[in-house]
Write a protein that binds this DNA or RNA. Structure first.
Lengths: 336, 336
DNA sequence: ATATACTATATAAGCGCTTTCATTTCAATA
DNA sequence: TATTGAAATGAAAGCGCTTATATAGTATAT
């Protein structure tokens, strides 16, 4: 049995294809009887419209595209869940494209398969691509960079301020020697957090020591190794606190410290970023900065849909994080 | 500036649109000079083919669709990563549709937007839908159910055997009273694991006690509560071991046990399923069954692409898990 | 010189759908 | 009775592309 098209339905129902189309799309010009008859026939034949034909003509897919190189990591959990729920709520579908192939990305963004695009792409998409997206009038919102552009939007985290606040918190506990465990330099968030950390140190009159910035690659293992070798190099002399660029790093750091016989937070405070699931169940439960991921997901979809439907222009929002104080940090103990 | 189409390129290059099409699609009939000239013009105009037009005509999208209600949870990490890498390798794109809306799902499966579909859908898609997918000759592979059907494939985990083996392992350590922490009854894996657990008990002459099956909802918190109230009901009398339906449950169980003052594995063994990231870093590191998720992702894509390209028929594969023995389980201590 | 076979390119049909506009029907009004 | 207009439906164009077929131009064989 071949695929049933609108023609088949028309023939079977004894009407023209435009009547079928009108019936299916709820265009209110038909005799109610005709309409329900057509709908019955369509159902009986198990007719499902071909989306390509539909889209080619109408240009409206009721689909949002999310372009990303990965959906791994705790961040995407919440983000994708919220976005898809929010899409559902507005009668849109969410279409995720996971690839690093810029060809594929651009061809799907510009190829007219979706009504609007959400882009999370640390690498790859450059200014020329962005110009091209803009020129094609594709509605778009970015999740990982600020766009200085009226036709596109961005909803990002204020990692700089968050790190500033977290550092300030550690300082307020009396810590003076604070180390930062960073990711790689191409990571926007890692760099923003480092900058915020440095700014806070500076503002509160503490000296920033280059040697206190460790390279943990935002991974458990990487951070574990970094901390171990740090302690080694400094012959056992610990900083007062570690500010880890993300929770995985914090967890790796704590594992290293525990394995070296230190107790947290008695001997050293540790603060992470992200508040991943496991953070609260860890021992000790981790003090960390929680991003408003769900809010980001909600906002990005709402914003994009408004841009599509109401021709609203691109807005740029920065979401503040919230410091969740648990047991991996405490007031500096004065030892004698 | 309006969207540039194949016509614009043709006009600008002074050739017909079929020549443009042939140049772009690398059809080897053109004079190399003509071809490169056309390609240059296309590039200069920033031409990107409209995928709907292309697809409508050709019927080939070089895209695979993955339909799921969620991408949350550690399982999807690996699965999606592997699938997308594997797609890339074969020149296909991966298109994830996250929704619970059956209308959306079916219309995208049957609407001709993708060349083949991968379906993970615990609920929603019923036998009628499956029949419809089959009738439309859509190539499909299922990840969460067995299909008894030659035109469709399935790559699933052998949860039954895995649980059987894990239970056998616990029995071999001398444990006799073994509790199972289950998810809800609609979860295929949870039920399969329960069945395997019960079968092993039976085969080794142990009695299965209805009261030893706890309801943890496959979540940390749920399992924590279930274990707490279990211990409460049994007035402190612990089983020899807990077999948790997944790692989150195992972690919740361990938290409950620790909070009640028990030590693991001295007082009770705990075994989980899935080997999530954190399992190895937990304290104590968790004994668990590792599924071949990456292998599943690889197989499903390869299989689907072979079905599409080589008209291969649907295969049905069951993937065996691997028991990873860590420190949350040990030989039964005989107390006096 | 004519027929034949290639080679390179253009023409045109049509994929499945929406949508504009024309047509038909029929009741209401002048 | 003729005119008008509203309501319901159909005809047809065309979205952007691929592809089968036609055509023209050139080289080779007879």
């Amino acid at each position: 049995m071949a695929k049933v098209t609108i023609k088949d339905v028309a023939r079977e129902a004894g009407v023209s294809i435009s009547t079928v189309s009108n019936a299916l799309n709820d265009v209110d010009v038909l005799n109610p009887e005709t309409k329900s008859h057509v709908l019955n026939v369509a159902k009986r034949l198990n007719y499902v419209p071909n989306l390509n034909g539909k889209l080619l003509k109408s240009g409206k897919s009721k689909m949002l595209g999310f372009f990303t190189t990965s959906v791994s990591g705790p961040y995407f959990y919440t983000l994708v869940e919220t976005m898809s729920r929010e899409c559902d709520r507005h009668g849109y579908g969410l279409n995720i494209f996971v690839t690093k192939d810029k060809q594929v990305i651009m061809s799907n963004i510009l190829g007219g398969r979706v009504d609007g695009v959400i882009i999370y792409e640390e690498l790859g998409i450059d200014d020329m691509d962005i110009a091209l997206i803009e020129k094609n009038k594709i509605k778009s919102v970015f999740l990982d960079r600020e766009i200085q552009n009226e036709t596109m939007g961005s909803i990002i985290f204020d990692s700089y301020v968050d790190a500033y606040e977290a550092t300030k918190y550690l300082i307020s506990l009396g810590h003076k020697k604070i180390a930062y465990i960073s990711g790689v330099e191409t990571m926007f968030d890692s760099e923003q957090r480092k900058a915020g950390y440095l700014a806070a140190l500076h503002d509160y009159g503490l000296t920033a020591d280059e040697g206190y910035i460790l390279q943990g690659y935002f991974e458990e293992e990487g951070s574990y190794n970094a901390v171990k070798s740090f302690v080694n190099i400094h012959s056992g002399k610990l900083p007062d606190a570690f500010l880890a660029g993300n929770d995985l790093s914090a967890i790796g750091a704590m594992r290293a410290l525990k394995s070296l016989g230190y107790e947290i937070p008695r001997d050293v405070s540790v603060v992470g970023f992200d508040d991943i699931d496991i953070a609260q169940y860890f021992s000790p439960p981790l003090t960390t900065v929680r991003n408003q991921i769900a809010r980001q997901g909600m906002l990005v979809v709402n914003h994009l849909i408004r841009m599509i439907q109401k021709k609203e222009q691109g807005r740029h929002e920065k979401l503040q994080g919230e410091l969740i104080v648990r047991n991996s940090s405490q007031i500096k103990m004065v030892r004698d």
